[in-house]
Nucleic acid binder design. Structure first.
Lengths: 108, 108
DNA sequence: TTGATACTGAAGTACAGACTTGAGTAATCG
DNA sequence: CGATTACTCAAGTCTGTACTTCAGTATCAA
């Protein structure tokens, strides 16, 4: 799967930044060019391009240059990796939380 | 819910660091003290305590000082916030991905 | 009470990351 | 063709974060 090639570290790091989450939200609504993404964000097009590079490496966004315009859209790989991480941890987590009081009592 | 008080930004930021993910993984297995967490991590106890402060603010970890030992364990709030974020985006995302080809054709 | 343990706080270093400017390239328009 | 558009590249700045050391404080054990 594509998710296997994606590092969860990159996904978390990418989504840690508010501007990048805003970009992801925008692209979840509709694909966009770099300059259209930059327009409402009080930063330069260059900065947006840098964010897009991070998002692309994390597998959350796909971009493709057509003529002089770069079309950006959501990609599933990063999202899949995140979903998988959450699913893997949920079992352990819930199990642990259920038994937490009991475990604390056992501990010395 | 506790998740409402948790900022998803903090959760992503907290989980962006490999050491903190390692700590979360360890605490998913069993609660631990600060020094026991630090032992296998080639960093100082102070650094671990700093990571724990980040994890605690993000709602992923709960700590409680008993005597001179700080007991650390998993907390659900951060995890809930993450699960919620993923769930909210999944719908949009899947919907968008399904229609991606179509949308790209419509775009000019 | 003395010494070891388990942290805590303050301060400083070093590197990463978000951002900028400025110059450049390539595609499209008139 | 020349002008505009849409981005790209290379520096460079500046803030934030991960980490350290060192000097505490509080607790527990003997």
């Amino acid at each position: 799967m594509a998710a296997a090639r994606v590092s969860i570290a990159r996904v978390f790091h990418a989504l840690g930044d508010p501007t990048r989450r805003a970009i992801v939200d925008r692209l979840s609504e509709a694909p966009s060019s770099v300059s259209r993404l930059a327009a409402p964000l009080a930063i330069t097009v260059t900065a947006v391009a840098q964010h897009l590079a991070v998002l692309e490496k994390s597998g959350l966004v796909r971009t493709q240059k057509v003529g002089r315009v770069r079309h950006c859209s959501i990609e599933s790989a990063g999202f899949d990796a995140l979903t998988q991480w959450v699913a893997e941890h949920r079992r352990q987590w819930e199990h642990r939380l259920d038994r937490l009081g009991e475990i604390l009592d056992e501990e010395e």
